[in-house]
């Protein structure tokens, strides 16, 4: 069953659309990278999927059921600001979450916390470092034994070691329980290692949606003389131009013309290309 789908979802805050006309269907058992610049609507999208925010238009479905004001029992959500009760100890927090759920696995929480470098169960959450708080929050999210895990910036405040540990926990979860994971992040290099599906959102719109390998294979980066751009076939996504050369991101490119060098983009340059393009569109719309 489709873990998460959206049909024409939009969310307006006063006079600004945070998300506009978003439609997508996520495949099951994949790790989905939700990428986009700050303010692109990533958080809003995840919060709508978790039943925290009601869409202004359209509808989201988790496991086939429309999201209406509450989270699906098979979905877990990690909020960006890690809203844990700061004056509870980790053990008390675990008891708190257990009491609030019909299905709960204390073993799973302890297993996850055990994987992490010495989390003191009797320390108050407020005394823990930002990274450990995130890891505790992920452990609590996994205690619900979700089939869809929504993570809003799970790696944002982690040092490289903690980031590695956290990614390992998520990957183990995916491997053992075939959980579908949606994670938003700026850290594209880290995402590339673990994600197999990309959902690129900017300006409230879905710009790219697809399997990472396929998406990357469909795009080329072409570097060549600034005068010869007309010889390039395919859909131009974005371009950076200097006096001496042009660098183009092209979708569905044709044969490489004379004098041009061609390579497959990595996730980072692909994302950069799309984000640059939408920024230029916005800038020119504002000029008009």
């Amino acid at each position: 069953m489709t873990p998460l789908s959206a049909t024409a979802v939009g969310k307006r805050y006063r006079d600004r659309w945070a998300v506009r006309d978003c439609s997508f269907t996520l495949p099951e058992g994949k790790v989905v990278a939700l990428i986009g610049p700050n303010g692109a609507g990533k958080s809003t999208l995840l919060r709508m999927a978790a039943g925290l925010v009601r869409p202004t238009t359209g509808e989201l479905r988790t496991f086939g059921a429309p999201v209406r004001g509450r989270i699906h029992p098979d979905v877990s959500f990690l909020a960006q600001d890690r809203p844990l009760h700061r004056d509870l100890t980790v053990r008390e927090l675990e008891r708190f979450c257990a009491a609030m759920n019909d299905r709960w696995s204390t073993d799973r929480v302890h297993e996850v916390l055990g994987l992490l470098a010495d989390v003191d169960l009797d320390a108050k959450v407020g005394t823990l470092s930002g990274g450990v708080v995130t890891q505790v929050a992920i452990a609590m999210a996994l205690g619900r034994l979700p089939r869809l895990l929504l993570l809003d910036e799970p790696l944002a405040d982690l040092d490289p070691l903690a980031r590695d540990e956290t990614l390992r926990i998520i990957m183990t979860e995916v491997a053992e329980r075939e959980t579908t994971v949606v994670m938003s992040s700026h850290l594209l290099a880290d995402l590339r290692e673990v994600c197999d599906h990309v959902l690129l959102v900017d300006d409230g719109l879905v710009q790219v949606d697809g399997d990472i390998e396929e998406v990357l294979a469909r795009h080329r980066i072409l570097v060549g003389p600034p005068t010869g751009e007309s010889t390039v076939e395919g859909t131009l996504v974005s371009a950076t131009r200097t006096q001496r050369q042009s660098t183009l991101l092209v979708r569905d490119a044709g044969p490489v013309p004379e004098g041009w060098a061609d390579s497959e983009p990595d996730l980072e340059s692909l994302a950069m290309g799309y984000l640059r393009a939408s920024r230029e569109r916005r800038a020119s719309a504002r000029r008009r």
């Binding site: 039943g51 925290l52 989270i71 877990s76 600001d81 809203p83 609030m100 019909d102």
Partner: peptide, 12 residues
């Protein structure tokens, strides 16, 4: 403090 989000994303 935003802790209502924790409560709202549990099953009760």
């Amino acid at each position: 403090q935003g802790t209502h989000v924790l409560a709202f994303t549990q099953s009760v």
